[in-house]
Structures are given as C-alpha cells and as structure tokens.
Design a binder for these strands. Structure first.
Lengths: 87, 87
DNA sequence: TCTTTGTTCAACCAATCGGTTGACAATCGC
DNA sequence: GCGATTGTCAACCGATTGGTTGAACAAAGA
C-alpha cells in the first residue's frame, strides 16, 4: 500500500544493491544483466530490483534487441533531495 | 541484517508516519506521546516508529520526568543528502 | 500509599521483502 | 531451424515490517 512518491523513492534507496545499481547507471546506460552482474545474485533477483527502481521512477527502460537498456532518471532523486533539504 | 548507515536512514525515511514525526520534531522537541498523537495509532505503535528513528540516529532522547523528550538529529540526513547529491 | 500518566516490552498477526528455482518468450548467431 | 543469450513471470521460502493487544514498569501527584 505504498502510494506516496517519497515512500517508493526512499524505499528504493534503502537497499544497497539498488543504490549500487543506480551508481552503476550514473556511469552510463546498462542492460538488466549488466546491472545485476556485480551482485552475486540470480537473474530473476536482479530483475526484481530493477523493477523496484523502475516503479519508483528512478530509471526508464528501452528495448534494444533482446536486451533491456536502463537509463537513470534523476527527477525523483531531486524530489527526495528537496524533502531532505527542508532541514 | 541492515548494517549500512544509508540503509537504515533511507529505510526510516521511507515511511510517511516517520517522515511526519521528523517534520513535527523540526518544529521543536516532543515527547513520544506527542509524536504519535497525530497518527491514529496505538501508543506502542508510535513507540516502535520512534525506536526506528532512534536506531537510524535521526533523533536522540532525553528523559524528563516520566516523559521521553525527542530531539531531531540532522547528521544522518546530511549523509543521505550527500549521497543523493552525487547526481 | 494509591492512582494516574507516559512508556516500553512481549507476543502475536497479516503483509511485504529479498531471494531462490523452474518454466517460458523473444532475439541473436550459426 | 537450432542453440545460446537476455529477460520475465509465477510460485515458493524465511526474515522482517507495521500494526495490534495486554501486561509491566517508572515517575508524579493526590
């Protein structure tokens, strides 16, 4: 029942695997496989994390052949930052 | 098994009740009861949220008679903000 | 002292989380 | 077409979450 935007953003950021994926994406677009590769984890597991990030609006995907290329979207990070900056 | 500081901070922030408590604390120190009062929730429930915030280092408490006065501690927010600002 | 107030604790519950496996679909290279 | 690559989905698992109730406790006030 997580409906608030800040909820999903902060929740997505609360996992080190997902933060690592975002850090990786900051260096350039990556496929789901490339994103999951550094984290000894099954493909499906990585796919789930990517879906959480996508659900939070932190990334967007584009199909390129059989790969799913992910790109960082900073807008929700900005929102989260604005919230933090209240203090 | 959440051992990373950013993990606990972002997790604490991912709940609207806890964000509300922090916002409330930003206006001045409050007891646990005062913090929980706006959120239709049992006393024990509010106490748990406060404990999460305390565990994340976002607040500190001081005993004043039978009340527990909570005060905002911004240091972990700063850390979280620094992380966000990488992008 | 007895009662009230403020708070925590322990036990429990349903829901969610992070992860797995196995089956499947789509696309590429041969 | 065949096989390998890339990824999703559904089902399951154990651990954790957010919440409840009820008992307990500590301090203040009568």
């Amino acid at each position: 029942m997580v409906d608030n935007r800040l909820d999903t953003t902060f929740h997505a950021l609360s996992d080190p695997t997902r933060r690592g994926m975002l850090a990786s994406l900051a260096l350039g677009d990556k496929s789901v496989g490339e994103l999951g590769e550094p984290f000894a984890m099954s493909f499906a597991g990585a796919s789930k994390h990517v879906k959480v990030l996508e659900g939070a609006g932190l990334i967007e995907r584009r199909k390129s052949g059989r790969k799913q290329i992910c790109r960082l979207k900073a807008a929700p990070l900005k929102e989260a930052d604005d919230w933090l900056r209240q203090w």
